[in-house]
């Protein structure tokens, strides 16, 4: 495929062609999210608003009976514990995870709340779609700037 052919580019480019000049990033982001399920979009904006949280949500969704410390969870998802500490606490605040204390250990588990479990399931199912992932990644990268 040649990048000089604008039609061909349009075929594989996951983002729609710019109709506004460079710098209209906010418009582009809004347009990208237009066709996203509002509930999933809200979950992405308010709860899974970083790559580490995304990893954690996917991990807990696949392993819903996990109960462990930040150090071990970091090992399971291949991240640094310093990176995931704040993210875990954010997910606890958002109601995705529950945190409890056992002796000196701070332990995290997936919530058993049925509505939150349903929202997580919905998000994970949506993220199987490549187009959704591309858009969500774009959204997260914009949020990091």
């Amino acid at each position: 495929m040649s990048n000089s052919d604008p039609e061909a580019y349009q075929e594989w480019n996951p983002f729609p062609r710019r109709s506004s000049p460079p710098g209209g990033g906010a418009d582009l982001a809004a347009r990208l999210m237009d066709d996203m399920d509002p509930e999933v979009l809200d979950f992405l904006k308010t709860t899974v608003n970083s790559f580490v949280k995304w990893d954690l949500v996917i991990f807990f969704s696949e392993n819903p009976n996990t109960t462990d410390t930040a150090v071990n969870l970091a090992r399971y998802i291949g991240r640094d514990v310093g990176t995931i500490n704040t993210e875990l606490d954010d997910l606890v605040e958002a109601g995705v995870l529950v945190q409890y204390q056992a002796g000196d250990l701070k332990i995290y588990s997936l919530t058993t709340h049925p509505l939150m479990r349903e929202r997580i399931k919905h998000f994970v199912e949506a993220s199987v779609d490549r187009q959704f992932r591309v858009k969500a990644i774009y959204h997260l990268i914009r949020g990091m700037r």
């Binding site: 392993n63 009976n65 996990t66 109960t67 462990d68 410390t69 071990n72 399971y76 056992a102 002796g103 000196d104 250990l105 332990i107």
Partner: peptide
């Protein structure tokens, strides 16, 4: 099937 660690299971 619970994924955990010895320290957590022991303390829990």
């Amino acid at each position: 099937v619970i994924m955990t660690s010895p320290e957590v299971s022991q303390a829990s």
